[in-house]
Write a protein that binds this DNA or RNA. Sequence first.
DNA 1: ATAGTGACTATAG
DNA 2: GCTATAGCCACTA
Length: 106
Amino acid sequence: MERSPLSEAILEIISSIPSGKVATYGQIAELAGNKKAARLVVWLLNSSSDKHDLPWHRVINRLGKISLETGYELQKEMLQLEGVQFGKNDVIDLNKYGWVSFDQEK
DNA sequence: ATAGTGACTATAG
DNA sequence: GCTATAGCCACTA
């Protein structure tokens, strides 16, 4: 499925996310080389998440929230099992649990 | 080849 | 703060 180098890079990055941390789409896209390929990340997760054993639950939007509507509860649960704590609005503190937090990434 | 799709993001009003 | 729009990438039909 990884026909393009970008997809390959993204998959690589996603599988590199350590347990107990989360990453945002834009972040992954940026690390992969195209900071605007967030949608590509989405596509990859949908197309190769279970096929590749990817930690799709560690990928969230830039607000530290899960955009999914289905399976959202499950994803949240999995993250909590890894030690990620959610805020009151189910928001994850990216400065704390972000794989590369916005303050440290640069 | 064109159009539609997708768990996004940034910007403008 | 929210909605609307546009931008971006790769894939599928």
